[in-house]
Write a protein that binds this DNA or RNA. Structure first.
Lengths: 214, 214, 214, 214
DNA sequence: AATGAATGAGCATTCATTCAT
DNA sequence: GATGAATGAATGCTCATTCAT
């Protein structure tokens, strides 16, 4: 949940190779603002205020408001793509283990909540940039789809599963968490993570079907 | 000083549901437009065009743009609330059956995709109206929570389950479907529905219990 | 739910009196326009045109059209309040002298015609601002009422006089002058001033007292 | 102060010779509304509401909003013109008596407060109609100017008086009364009337001048 | 690196007005 | 006589964006 950009790689310093620290701060501000108000409703003044600037000053870092949205999404997806890289000891693990470990990594804290913005505000990017973002998303989806295919092949997952459907659903569940989850609830974030793991591990397992009603 | 009447409203003619057919058409247009562009990005002209009106003409039916958003949400939730009413033959059914049947009803086609708007655009309603919508949401959540509690009580569901977490997650999954689902996929909408049923039935089942045969 | 932030204002840059010269020019334009057309009928474009701006550019200086009205009234009353301060040599003068000298000061040329706007357009201010303006008015009224009371006490003014009535009437007469007075008339503005002095000096004089010789 | 139209002569039944009683009611509503809010700020809906109509229904009686303003002014001036007709016993009276009697007639109750609207909203009439109203005003002014000239001629009034200035000032004083006068004051309306009479009688009287200050 | 000043496109909203019923 | 439904011109206001300093 840490929003700070300490782990963020240098992304798109748009005008020249300017002060990257400041650019990361601006992205932080933009991410928080867009997350709170949505891209359209968020004002450049809103973003600028968070870094103690006036709106026109942002144009030192960007050429258009859309640049901020793209910058935020780019940084978030770079973080996300790093999370689909598996530790060496997971090579050769079974599908369920890999799935559960992915859920734990994704929920594990380094991942910023900015992803939930993606579905909501993707439409405000230019088609070309939308395609770029979708490319990143596809790579993430493919990672999950591969795991599902592995599980189906070796018989531990239900043979009926459509990998892309599983991938989409899992991302929806994980990324929507900040939408409804309150720290005040009776369950901790870690417990929630384990429940997600159980839900999907149990729900994908073969030889199970709901009973028909009536 | 006469009255500080800088905004004294006279008796304004009652608008709204005079011509209900037209009002429903307007709501349809608003729902489609908001769904496509989001509330902020959607223009009153966008909405008006769909019903062959000019933007100011909408003000014959509404007092403010927000009224359209509220109208759409209200109608969607009325439909939703009808779907948590169970058929008589489900009285006395076990938790898993009730859960699966609910998923089938909810996905069953009469339900408009407008619910996905809710999370995204709820913030654009006045606080009072936000509260009203949240009240409807709560009633739906409570229905699912009750089913979960029943399952936990009679031992068919994992004793560890937090009912509200389950409810939120299930709604997220169901309502996000239109976000990513394309008719062009290899699975039909009906097959998707059954997979959702399998996912949650399997995922909630207590681990102690014997694996159910199909 | 995050915050019900449908109208959460961020830290907006302080506008207004940054460039005071320009702000005074804008106020001049607003005063002239409102005086000519009335507040409601006056368009922001009307005001902006007088200072060679486009209408939206005015919002660099104001937050709302009402701010212009209040600014104009504030400035006019500040001038007016300065006119109720008496020169040292008037200390100890009799009521009639003080009254006549006030009339001469008020009509004396530095006073802008914007006061006539007050009665007409006061209602378009917010209640709080209406109260503020009325406070200034009251201070002016009190000054005249004091003079009247002095005259009544020492017997030079009619004992029957209601000070507040006299004050209101005198202000109405003085401030309405621009409404009907045309420079083309046979009397100069200075002659008009002297006639006002004569009218009120003569009209307030107690009937018991001997007729004063010139 | 009676606003009711019982004494109003049939004025401008604009479309055909329609229901005159209703037309007078509409004029009453328009007068009250314009008086309260000003012509521009007043909405046709405001006016219509007072007679339990919807705005478009007014178009049965008028062709344009301006017709209402003109209708109100016309009716008010017809009443006013009747007040400059003197009773037979005043023929041959001296100037001061005629002046005081006029003040008493004008303040005497039958005169509607709508006249104060005139100065404020005259500009919103078409030039032609403005001219017509000004014609009525001139006839009233002339009546007062004649009285002043009579007084100057026979030496009871100050020889220096400019008749038109006196007329304008007197009308300003009388017609502005409702602007500031509150029934709650210590003086009754009748007492106020007598003070007006004293003010002008005393103020116009010859052989009086204010003392010079300093 | 940042701001003051201004622009221009666009949007929600108001309101006088029309017209068929 | 009056209304429901709609129009279109206009208006206040927001906001991304520009540019000289």
């Amino acid at each position: 949940m840490a929003r700070s950009s300490n782990t963020a790689p240098p992304t798109v310093p748009p005008k020249g190779t300017l002060n990257d620290r400041r650019w990361q701060e601006v992205l932080d501000a933009a991410a928080a603002t867009f997350d709170e108000k949505g891209y359209q409703a968020a004002t450049l003044q809103d973003v600028a205020s968070r870094v103690d600037l006036l709106a026109p000053s942002l144009y030192y870092y960007i050429k258009t408001k859309e640049d901020l949205l793209f910058g935020v999404m780019q940084r978030a997806h770079q973080l996300g793509l790093r999370l689909i890289e598996e530790a060496p000891e997971l090579a050769g693990a079974d599908a369920e283990t890999r799935l559960v470990e992915f859920i734990r990594r994704w929920m594990g804290g380094t991942y910023p909540p900015e992803v939930r913005m993606v579905e909501r505000d993707l439409r405000h990017l230019s088609p070309a940039r939308q395609a770029e973002v979708m490319g990143w998303r596809d790579r993430m989806d493919h990672y999950l789809e591969d795991i599902v295919r592995q599980g189906v092949t070796d018989g531990t997952f239900d043979a009926d599963l459509e990998p892309s459907v599983v991938a989409s659903t899992l991302f929806v569940v994980l990324n929507s968490t900040p939408t409804w989850w309150r720290a005040s609830g009776r369950r901790s974030y870690a417990e929630l993570t384990e429940w997600y793991a159980k839900l999907f591990a149990g729900g994908l397992r073969s030889e199970q079907g709901p009973r028909r009603a009536v």
